[in-house]
Simulated assay, not measured.
Amino acid sequence: MARTSGKLSRITEQPSHYDHLEQMSVGELLKHINEEDALVADAVGKANPQIEALVEAIETRMKRGGRLFYVGAGTSGRLGVLDASELPPTFGVPEGWVTGIIAGGDEALRHAVEKAEDSPEQGWNDLQAFHPTADDSVIGIAASGTTPYVIGAIRQAHQNGLLTGCITSNPNTPLAEASDFPIEIIVGPEFVTGSSRMKSGTAQKMVLNMISTTLMIRMGRVHGNRMVKMQLTNAKLVDRGTRMLQDYLGLDYDEAQQRLLDAGSVAGALKGKGRKH
């Protein structure tokens, strides 16, 4: 990033392309927000080679028994916790296989915790509670790429032999420099100047989905195109699993549901049963 008056000039802090927002109608505001959001997928696509390199490196370690950690603050931290928390019910993975860590702890999921992101030591301290090993991987998430909590965690993780990556919305940041596998998603200025919960947050969510879903597929948690190891935590998922078994085994609904409930998962019910022809 360029330097202005001795400070880093961050794209995420540059003025919006729109002004006088308070004078716009509801329709105008929605239209322009949507126009800006439409730019995000293309920006993510340009970073596909960076994402691929990180996923392949994490996969190698996960197949040795390693875990994945997300570390972030504010919106970035919340998105990491969200992605990690969805994997056990969606793919049936053990709790702790993928973990989100947010500056300020669980309280910060709902409320801003003052100065939680400002400590360069606390990120690694929070990570140490999980007894990380050299087979583990850590992804730092920070739109600015300058968050001390995240940079400190990544630097210490690297020094301790963990694989490190990051997701940021600015080029050439301290966070990217500290990471083995940086991912830079340049979405441009936000619709509301500096509000990185918007395009930057959307980009982070997309990249996290790409990383975790690809890893789950590569780790054998999907059969065909279906979540055969999802947890049966509600009626909707039981119904979904039942219909999967109907399709795979040619059973009527009641028999398929009974097999599902007896086995505890679609994968379990399919084991040794063979697919219908």
Rank of each mutant, 00 (worst) to 15 (best):
L29V: 15
F91D: 01
I217H: 02
R259M: 14
S119D: 11
P89K: 10
A41T: 12
I185G: 03
L30F: 14
G145Y: 03
P89A: 12
H111R: 15
I11T: 11
I183W: 04
R240C: 01
I58W: 00
G274D: 12
L163E: 03
G72A: 02
R259E: 12
M206K: 05
A157F: 04
T133E: 13
V192T: 11
V40E: 01
L54H: 03
T233G: 10
S196C: 09
L68W: 08
L232G: 05
P171A: 15
S85N: 09
P89Y: 06
R275A: 10
G100K: 01
A2M: 13
L68A: 09
H17S: 12
E22Y: 08
H223K: 14
F91I: 09
E177S: 14
L163W: 02
D19N: 14
Q159V: 03
V187I: 12
G100T: 10
A269N: 10
E255Y: 04
E28K: 11
N125R: 15
G45P: 04
A84F: 00
L8D: 12
R64H: 09
F191Y: 15
V81E: 08
Q50I: 11
F91S: 06
L249Q: 13
G140R: 00
D254P: 00
K31S: 15
H158V: 10
G188W: 00
M62E: 06
P174V: 06
S85K: 09
I51D: 02
D252S: 09
G165N: 10
V187S: 06
G268S: 01
Q159I: 00
W97A: 13
L245F: 05
G80F: 02
E28S: 08
R64I: 08
V238G: 03
F130T: 12
I141D: 00
G194R: 08
H158G: 12
G224K: 13
G100Q: 07
N170A: 13
L109K: 05
S5H: 14
M244G: 00
K276F: 11
A108W: 06
D118W: 05
I101H: 02
A134V: 13
I217W: 04
K199E: 02
M198L: 15
I51L: 10
K46D: 06
V138C: 03
K199R: 11
I141P: 03
N34Y: 07
D254N: 12
